[in-house]
C-alpha cells in the first residue's frame, strides 16, 4: 500500500509547480495538433516537407529572438519565406524537386545558424533549436491554443476533401475536391502546426510530433478517425512521459519528448512485426 502511495505521490508530485502545469498544457496542445495533422502528413507523404519547413523557418525565429519581436511572428514570416523559396526552387528546371528542397533548406538553416551562433548574438539561442517546453508562458499557451483550435477546426471541416484527395488524387477533382487546394490547405495547416509545436520542441525536433505518433498510429489503426485518436493519445502520453523523465532525471525535456515519440513508433513497429511473425507461424502450422 505504501508503495502504491509513494508511486502516486511521485506521479502527482511534478504537477504542483506552475512551470510543470504549463508544460503539461503545452504538451497536450502539441499532441492534439501534431497527432491529428500528422496523420495527413504521413498519409500524404509530406514528411520531408514538414522537416524542410521546420528547418527553413529557423532564420525567422532567430531574427525574432534577436530583435525582440514575438517568436510567433518571426516563425510565421520564416515559414512563408521558406515555402516561397521552396516553390521557386522547385521550378528551376533540371535539378529535381528533392534536390531543390535540400538546397533551400541548407541555405536557410545555414543562415539561421550563422545568425544564432555569431559571436555578437546573445547566448540562449539554443532554446530555438531544441525548444523550451519548461519555459512556456501563459501567453504562449494562449497563442498555441488559438492556433490549435484553428488547425483542428480546419481539419474537421476539410476532412472529406482531404480524404478524397489522399485516397485517389486523380479522381478527386471530379468528386468536387480539387487536389491543389487540398495541398495548399495542408501546407498552411502544417505551417500553423509547426508554429504551435516549435515552442515545446524547437526547430530541430518539431518534426518528431508531426511524424512519429501518426506513423505509429498508422500501424495500429485501420480507419482514419481511430488513427487520429491513437496518434493524439500517443503524442500526449509520450509528451507526459518526457516531462516525467526530465523532471526526475533532469534530462532535456524537448529531446526526451521527441525520443519517447520515436520510441512509440519503434514499439508499434515491433508489435506489428511480432504479430505478422505469429501469423506466419500459424500459417505454417496449418499447412
Amino acid at each position: 500500500m505504501t508503495v502504491l502511495a509513494s508511486v502516486l505521490t511521485a506521479l502527482g508530485d511534478p504537477w504542483d509547480q506552475g512551470i510543470m502545469q504549463r508544460a503539461l498544457l503545452e504538451v497536450v496542445l502539441l499532441g492534439l495538433v501534431g497527432g491529428a495533422l500528422g496523420c495527413w502528413i504521413v498519409l500524404s507523404e509530406l514528411s520531408y516537407g514538414a522537416e524542410s519547413l521546420a528547418h527553413g523557418m529557423f532564420p525567422g525565429l532567430v531574427l525574432a529572438a534577436l530583435t525582440g519581436i514575438p517568436l510567433l511572428l518571426g516563425g510565421a514570416a520564416g515559414i512563408l519565406v521558406a515555402a516561397l523559396a521552396v516553390a521557386l526552387a522547385g521550378r528551376v528546371p533540371g535539378i529535381g524537386r528533392d534536390n531543390a528542397v535540400a538546397v533551400v533548406v541548407t541555405t536557410l538553416f545555414g543562415l539561421g545558424v550563422l545568425l544564432a551562433l555569431s559571436p555578437s548574438s546573445p547566448p540562449g539561442i539554443q532554446g530555438l533549436l531544441f525548444g523550451d517546453v519548461l519555459g512556456t508562458s501563459a501567453g504562449d499557451l494562449l497563442d498555441g491554443a488559438a492556433l490549435a483550435a484553428v488547425v483542428l477546426a480546419a481539419l474537421w471541416v476539410l476532412h472529406w476533401r482531404l480524404l478524397a484527395v489522399g485516397f485517389d488524387r486523380l479522381s478527386a477533382r471530379a468528386l468536387g475536391a480539387p487536389p491543389l487546394l487540398a495541398d495548399a490547405a495542408l501546407l498552411i495547416l502544417l505551417a500553423l502546426a509547426v508554429l504551435v509545436a516549435v515552442q515545446g520542441l524547437g526547430n530541430l525536433l518539431v518534426v518528431a510530433v508531426l511524424v512519429a505518433p501518426a506513423a505509429a498510429a498508422r500501424l495500429l489503426a485501420r480507419r482514419l478517425l481511430p488513427m487520429m485518436a491513437t496518434a493524439v493519445a500517443i503524442a500526449i502520453v509520450a509528451g507526459i512521459a518526457g516531462l516525467y523523465l526530465s523532471y526526475y532525471v533532469r534530462v532535456a525535456a524537448g529531446a526526451s519528448i521527441a525520443g519517447f515519440m520515436v520510441l512509440a513508433y519503434a514499439l508499434a513497429r515491433l508489435a506489428t512485426l511480432a504479430e505478422s511473425l505469429r501469423g506466419a507461424a500459424t500459417l505454417t502450422e496449418a499447412n
Binding site: 516537407g49 516553390a87 491543389l180
Partner: peptide, 11 residues
C-alpha cells in the same frame, strides 16, 4: 502555396 505544396509533396 500551391506551388510550394506541389514541390514538397514531390520531395
Amino acid at each position: 502555396p500551391v506551388a510550394a505544396a506541389a514541390t514538397l509533396r514531390g520531395g
